[in-house]
Design a protein around this nucleic acid. Structure first.
Lengths: 142, 142
DNA sequence: TAATTAAATGCAACATTGTTGCACTTGGAA
DNA sequence: TTCCAAGTGCAACAATGTTGCATTTAATTA
């Protein structure tokens, strides 16, 4: 908890209960946290505060977000390569259709994403399928 | 217009004014159409009808949608490989930060998207940058 | 340790996107 | 022309997200 406090202060963010609670939830969650989960775990906080807290953490490179279609937004911790200057992620986002867990994953090899005569500044890869844990269960059941 | 009507009837959808108008707008728009654009071009239609019409076209493989972060949803025509059985797109979605146009584009080469021990069913690649047209303008201005 | 203040929070009000139920209307086939 | 399943409009609702303003608080400093 003291680490999270330092992390916030390093970014010139006050270590308030709201921020510590949300950061701690995101850090300890199995995979990326759906927005609804943040809301229900922090029901005593005003919704506005939750939104503003999330935005502060996003802008300062402590967490990042991803979305699957129109559905819920998910939040996960950032690697140390992120800062208030911007986000730098190499990973992709994966949602398992079996256990519903959303996670940050590394690809086997980094793909070359190019379109002729276009300048590409940001790449976002969103995958759906079955995760390693659920595949193992399926195999062992059969 | 007669083609669009046939297209709808082939999918067992009635060729109603709402559907013809939305399909026609999506077909003739420069790039993918933002939702707000559909709404403002079809202001005389009830919002519910717009949502239901869009959903019908999505489910029947006539159009597809994409999103950039929390921002607006965009709609574009589907290739003929899509049907009520499901969508089959090879293309990626690109948003130009200069002209704001969102478009479906093909990559130079199809990347191999793999995560060890995961089964990947659906790949969604969302790119941001500067499109070919805006790059040309920048070059000719300098 | 108390005072100070910029930053953070809570509350109220609002806007947009999206859904559902139900009554009414209509496209397309017989 | 008739018919009816499919489509539409309306009302009500729910969730996400934003803004302005008054109040509270974390962290500094005296």
């Amino acid at each position: 908890m003291e680490e999270l406090k330092d992390l916030l202060n390093q970014r010139n963010l006050k270590a308030t209960p709201a921020r510590l609670q949300i950061l701690s939830l995101v850090q300890n969650y199995d995979g990326a946290v759906p927005f609804g989960e943040i809301q229900s775990h922090l029901g005593e906080l005003d919704r506005t505060t939750i939104f503003r807290t999330i935005n502060a953490l996003l802008q300062n490179g402590l967490i990042h977000k991803t979305q699957f279609g129109n559905a819920e937004t998910y939040f996960a911790m950032c690697p140390k390569t992120c800062s208030e200057q911007g986000h730098q992620h190499q990973h992709v986002h994966f949602k398992c259709t079996n256990c519903e867990v959303v996670s940050c994953e590394d690809l086997s090899s980094n793909p070359r994403i190019e379109i002729p005569n276009f300048q590409i500044d940001k790449v976002d890869i969103i995958l759906t399928g079955v995760c390693n844990r659920c595949l193992v269960v399926q195999v062992s059941v059969n």
